[in-house]
Design a protein around this nucleic acid. Structure first.
Lengths: 221, 221
DNA sequence: ATCTGCAAGATTGCATGCAACCAACGAAGG
DNA sequence: CCTTCGTTGGTTGCATGCAATCTTGCAGAT
């Protein structure tokens, strides 16, 4: 039968450990840590009100996911992309995320659909309002993560997340034109529609167009 | 039980965490741990001659890579596949590993080529000799890992490893027919040739054929 | 003035202690 | 006899202490 809502690719270890992991991931996503910045265990531990142990755990997890670089006796620092790496990741994303879309859409349940609609609505509200780039990026990542997490195979989820998560450091929406932004929002709405219709191929096509469009819109060079 | 690492030649050279990780990965690959078996930190620590801390680190790393399942206050246990999951992973592997091959072959340096040849030679020696399935599987994984690790993008490597590494629990060579084994060896030789020639497309084609052939040769039931 | 060597501070990695939590077993009651 | 609850042993998660290593700054020599 169907199981409870277990999130694929998110190994829950403890309690403080997960909190620290989520917090660090959020801070990296929001650009609170500069690329290449070194992350000191003691400072983070004191800042988050825990000891160094859960901080170490979280950093190791981030390292395994490729979001921070660690060197033997020097600790962790946020990854820094070359422009070429970023471009490559975009290519890979354009290739694989639509596939994840096609696989996941037929498996989405009502809660997932509701979450997609909620995220879409909140993004539209932000676009209509103050354009808070950080929060918008977070919601966008959550939106895309739904398809990845529900693609039906846990290891595929992990693999895709390894490809997509590093993109968070690029702070996607920072340099968007209003026109591209509007187009992205429409793509999201269409994705919600396709998901509600259970049409994986439609969703795949929309997602592919969405990503390729985004690639040209963010062209920073 | 094995006791080859009971005496540590290097007392303070650090990297105990990595050593434990490699050891656990090897043991899982060699089938020394049954699928679903629970891994106790204290027991592993005592067995490996270290404290629980590096063992915990290694287990968290394995969890992030999807090789062990962890539940909040129950610790880690080796993943167990459904037949469907295994089949899906094989599909994905057949789709993606040849691509990694094509990307990596033009980037291989002399040391990589030498390693491929060495691994190939050792596998042939084992096939000619005692057919030690465990060691053969290890060498085979190392052989395939070369292409994944040299594919040119670190995050793609991480993603592909997330897809391929879980397959190690299936103990690939255990139920191979001598004929299929011979064919695999020939494929490896051809891969070495293609790699030496720097021909990524050739290598890609050989790898795809190799994997698809393997899929039929192994009977997962 | 620049480079080299050293020494002190700082940081990571490992070991250990302690509390919370879970699982299993046994006893008491229906 | 079966069910239920309390107890006990064991395991994980977190905090802390300590040694090894790296970094930084300065003094001295060339």
């Amino acid at each position: 039968m169907v199981s409870e809502r277990s999130e694929a690719g998110e190994p829950t270890t403890g309690e403080a450990s997960d909190r620290v992991y989520a917090e660090l991931l959020a801070r990296i996503s929001e650009g609170e840590f500069a690329a290449g910045e070194r992350l000191y265990e003691q400072a983070l531990a004191h800042d988050l009100g825990v000891s160094r142990t859960p901080v170490r755990d979280a950093l190791k997890r981030l390292a395994a996911e490729g979001l921070v670089d660690t060197t033997p006796n020097k600790g962790a620092q946020v990854i820094s992309f070359t422009a070429e790496d970023a471009a490559t990741l975009y290519e890979l994303r354009a290739q694989f995320e639509p596939v994840a879309c096609r696989l996941s859409v037929p498996r989405l349940v009502e809660a997932d659909l509701a979450e997609l609609e909620d995220l879409d609505a909140r993004m539209q509200a932000i676009v209509a309002g103050g354009h808070d780039a950080a929060e918008l990026t977070g919601l966008n990542n959550a939106f895309h993560a739904v398809f990845v997490e529900r693609c039906g195979n846990r290891h595929l989820s992990i693999a895709l997340q390894a490809l997509f998560r590093p993109a968070v450091v690029t702070r996607t929406f920072r340099e968007y034109s209003p026109r591209s932004l509007e187009r992205s929002m429409q793509a999201h709405q269409q994705l919600v529609e396709a998901a509600r219709a259970g049409d994986g191929e439609w969703a795949e096509a929309v997602m592919r167009a969405h990503i390729l469009s985004t690639r040209h819109a963010t062209h920073h060079d």
